[in-house]
Structure formats: structure tokens, C-alpha cells
Amino acid sequence: MTVVESHKDPQALTLTIKAEFTATPDKVWQVWSDPRKLERWWGPPTWPATFTAHDFVPGGRAQYYMTGPEGEKAHGWWEFVTIDAPNGLAFDDGFADQSGAPQDDGLVTRAVVRLDGAFPGTLMTITSQFPSAQAMEQLVSMGMEEGIVGALGQVDALLAED
């Protein structure tokens, strides 16, 4: 498995997950920048994602939904805050309604992704910052950590194809 560390910090309201890949940062960057590649790994293996929008620029938005095993759909959105190819990105992440409009439920997280090529390959660090302890507890109890770990477990196969 590619995930080498997962750490919850309730004091800092963060969840940090680190994964190692044998590919270069430029190649790993493509799993974020290309929506067709992104939808092949974003979401747990039993909840694949479909991106309906992916405006990959600062201030741009992405809309997606994940489809569950029974055909149910969970909608989400991102707003890109920073894009620093191939070193990393940051985006706000939240739930959406069926039309893709953000839900006003207070569960917006800030995800910061760093790609470090210092190790042989790439170390990807994803840090999710929660707005409150309650939001962190709710999202973690919904399986956020397991979902990200499962999703990252799909990246090696995708990188091996190119």
C-alpha cells in the first residue's frame, strides 16, 4: 500500500495522510490536474467519482459525485485556492446538493496537497483542516480517513499505466 502515515491532530483540527509513489512529482501531479485520471482514484474503491466540472485554476471550481454500490450518489464541490504545479495545491472541499450547489452545513474543509520529490519518487502529503472539532469528529466518523486511504491505494495502478 502507498499510504505510509495517517495522523489526526484534534488540537490543530487536522487530518494528515502521507503516501509514497515511485513516480516523479510531474507524473503524480497529473492525477490531480487531469479530471479523467482524478475520477479514477478520487473516492473509495466502492464509491467511484465522476467529475462534471474541473476548472483547475486558482478560484476555479470542481463539481463531482461519487456513486455508491447501490447506485446512490454523494455530491461534492471544490474551490481551488492555490495551484503550484507540480509541487502542490490547496482547495476548499464540501458537500453539494444534486445540482452541484454547495450545502450550507458547516462541513467545509481546506485540503492542502504537497508533492515532495526528495525521496526516490514522490511523497504526497494531504492535510485536511477542519473548521471545528465538531466538524472534524463528524467527518472522521463518516469514514473520511478510511476513504482517503482507500482512494490513495488506487493511485499506484493508475501511475503504472502511463
Rank of each mutant, 00 (worst) to 15 (best):
I148S: 05
A85H: 13
Q138C: 03
T14D: 06
D105Q: 10
T2Y: 07
V108W: 03
L107Y: 08
S33T: 12
P58F: 07
S128Q: 13
F91S: 13
R36P: 04
A160H: 07
E137F: 01
T127M: 12
S132E: 02
A96H: 10
V112R: 04
V108D: 06
L38A: 12
I126D: 08
W41G: 00
D104P: 07
M66A: 13
G76D: 09
L38T: 08
V113T: 00
F80I: 09
T2A: 15
W77K: 06
E137I: 00
M1N: 13
G100S: 13
L38I: 05
M142F: 02
W41N: 00
A133I: 08
H75Y: 15
A118E: 12
R110A: 02
V3E: 06
P35W: 00
P86Q: 13
P69I: 15
D84C: 08
G147Y: 03
A19W: 01
K8R: 14
D34A: 05
A96Q: 09
Q154E: 10
A74R: 14
V140Y: 06
K8G: 07
F95D: 12
Q129P: 05
M66F: 12
G71L: 09
K37W: 03
V4F: 14
P131Q: 03
R110Q: 06
G121P: 10
A135T: 05
G94L: 12
S141G: 04
K18P: 14
M142R: 03
R114H: 09
M144V: 03
L115R: 01
L139C: 01
P10R: 13
I17E: 07
Y64V: 05
Q138P: 00
V57K: 15
L89I: 01
L89R: 04
G117C: 02
T109P: 09
L139R: 01
G60Q: 12
S6W: 08
T24A: 13
E145M: 04
F95N: 10
G147E: 01
L38H: 02
R114E: 04
T109M: 05
Q30F: 13
K73A: 07
E70L: 15
A133N: 05
T24E: 15
M124F: 06
V57F: 04
A151G: 08
A19M: 05
E79M: 12
F80Y: 13
R110W: 06
D93M: 14
T122A: 11
A160K: 04
P58R: 15
L159E: 09
G153P: 01
E39L: 10
A133K: 03
D97I: 09
D93E: 12
P44A: 15
W47L: 06
G60F: 11
D116T: 00
A133Q: 05
I83G: 03
L15F: 08
V113R: 01
Q98C: 04
L158C: 06
P69S: 08
Q63L: 14
P69M: 12
T24V: 11
H75E: 14
E137C: 00
A151H: 02
G100I: 06
